[in-house]
């Protein structure tokens, strides 16, 4: 390989945390990294929705949204009746679980979209006005909105109904296929929101300390890319799960 060693001297390296490399070079690299992570996340979302739609499509044993058993109490309640006290419980009923609250679903989505909107507007403001103080405030607001979304996501998770079923010698607490798929989807949303809350907190602190400011705003944009993607994913999730759910 022919190499021209008389090129301009470049005495700085990759281990200097980007202090000497031009920030836009470092930024370009990190932007690609963020987009690739988002790409992997898109495959993950696709696989989750595939799971949801596939289980709905096959509806094994008619158990997409219904199952024989009992509901309303924790596992130990029925277990005690059956195994410990030697009692018996009435014949199992076919329980139709119904969909999870669409309102709660969309509420989380709206909160995520709003938080993404705030973080985007904050970044535009920072780049236009160079005011890191107001950026910090808006990032904090966005983080708070995300935390509220986390709370509602946890509420949604806790609303997924368990069904106790006792057949022959095995006692099981189970979820219908719909509830299983929703637990994975809502769980994934929860993990993403926790990451956003961490990133939002970081942006808040960093901009307050001057690590992000009117000239060093690249990281704000990197985080915004991911934030907007999570918001878009949330819209897709809510749209799919609230329009395609019951089987007639």
């Amino acid at each position: 390989m022919s190499i021209d060693t008389h090129s301009e001297l470049d005495a700085h390296g990759a281990h200097d945390g980007g202090h000497h490399e031009p920030p836009e070079v470092v930024d370009g690299r990190q932007r690609m990294g963020v987009w690739l992570f988002i790409g992997g996340d898109m495959i993950g979302l696709g696989a989750l929705l595939f799971t949801y739609l596939y289980l709905r499509g096959v509806n094994s044993g008619g158990h997409w949204m219904s199952m024989w058993g009992y509901t309303g109490h924790p596992y130990s309640y029925y277990y005690n009746i059956l195994d410990v006290k030697g009692g018996s419980i009435p014949n199992p009923k076919l329980i139709h679980v119904g969909t999870l609250s669409a309102g709660l679903n969309w509420l989380v989505t709206v909160l995520t979209v709003v938080s993404a909107g705030i973080i985007w507007a904050a970044e535009r403001g920072l780049r236009a006005t160079k005011n890191a103080k107001s950026y910090s405030t808006l990032a904090a607001a966005s983080t708070v909105v995300t935390v509220v979304a986390i709370v509602f996501t946890v509420i949604q998770l806790r609303h997924i109904p368990q069904i106790f079923s006792a057949h022959n010698d095995s006692l099981t607490m189970a979820y219908t296929a719909y509830d299983s798929a929703m637990m994975a989807i809502v769980g994934s949303t929860l993990i993403h929101l926790i990451v956003l809350a961490f990133l939002g907190l970081g942006l808040t602190i960093r901009s307050a300390r001057g690590a992000i400011n009117g000239t060093k705003w690249y990281q704000a944009r990197l985080v915004r890319f991911f934030w907007v993607w999570v918001a878009v994913a949330s819209v897709i999730i809510s749209a799919v799960t609230t329009t395609i759910n019951t089987i007639h």
């Binding site: 289980l55 509806n59 044993g61 158990h63 199952m67 099981t172 189970a174 219908t176 296929a177 299983s180």
Partner: peptide, 14 residues
Amino acid sequence: TFSTSFFVANAGGT
């Protein structure tokens, strides 16, 4: 661990 039924046929999985 959570008794979901993604892959358990008698509870709606496959």
